[in-house]
């Protein structure tokens, strides 16, 4: 891999965010674009559910409606995630046959999470990869990722909790099987943010530079910054699909 295309941090709404990730993935898989790292944020706040999840089992619809939290179904599997404007989300798309990313799914998670772990360590937190798809600091989750493999590409996207608006956590239904008891306190024992660990605010712009450098170093690639994904014309139709009730409530 000699070149990584980088799309720098911008806020988007849930539907645009998922549409752009898919457009990038299609462009990369179709050979129209080199491996692409995109860094972005969510505004307004949103919850995303995994491709196989039953939405109403995971999300408090009434709370989301009252607090104007968007709901979107991802192309990737995995669990429900609350996205607030203080977090940073990344997506990395690479051709499925690119030799720098292992064919086996577990190995590829580790490979793509490695630059994130390095960037977090540069910031000063003792981050570790925890299989299958998490990054933890002192046993508390600071980042979770999910993959989908379609259109000739692997797309891995994930959150990095620089900060978090905990007041929106009730958007996710916490299950007794997953947490000891219901309630925000228990979630806060399982997850933390970089801001809390470092006792200062970490802005997206600060972490973004570390992350880009780390991806370039890990994949021994040069960085080409761009605002284009190679398949811009797909975005409006993809946004419509991600907005549709048919897609959102398909499970």
């Amino acid at each position: 891999m000699d070149k990584i295309r980088v799309i720098r941090f911008e806020y988007g709404d849930a539907f645009f965010n998922m549409a752009l990730d898919e457009a990038i993935m299609r462009a990369v898989g179709g050979g129209m674009s080199p491996p692409t790292l995109r860094i972005y944020g969510w505004d307004p706040p949103a919850v995303s559910v995994g491709y196989f999840q039953e939405l109403k089992e995971e999300i408090d619809l009434e709370f989301c409606h009252d607090r104007k939290i968007q709901m979107v179904r991802r192309l990737s599997g995995g669990g429900a995630v609350l996205h607030t404007p203080k977090e940073l989300t990344y997506s990395f798309s690479v051709r499925v046959d690119d030799p720098l990313v292992p064919q086996d799914v577990q190995g590829s998670y580790m490979k793509i999470c490695a630059p994130i772990v390095s960037a977090l360590r540069k910031l000063g937190v003792e981050a570790n990869f925890r299989p299958i798809n998490d990054i933890e600091v002192a046993r508390r989750k600071v980042s979770g990722s999910a993959q989908t493999r379609r259109f000739g590409a692997v797309l891995q996207h994930g959150t990095i909790l620089l900060g978090m608006d905990y007041s929106l956590l009730p958007a996710l239904k916490t299950r007794p099987e997953k947490l000891a008891e219901k309630g925000v306190r228990d979630v806060r024992d399982r997850i933390t943010t970089i801001g809390e660990l470092l006792r200062r605010e970490v802005k997206q712009s600060e972490f973004e530079d570390l992350l880009i450098r780390s991806f370039a170093a890990h994949f021994q690639a040069s960085v080409e910054e761009t605002k284009l994904c190679g398949m811009e014309e797909l975005i409006p139709a993809l946004e419509e699909r991600y907005k549709s009730a048919e897609w959102t409530f398909r499970r």
Partner: peptide, 15 residues
Amino acid sequence: IRITGDFFAHPEEGI
């Protein structure tokens, strides 16, 4: 039959 959850399947259409 319907299989739901926070697991992963590749390819996704397999489910």
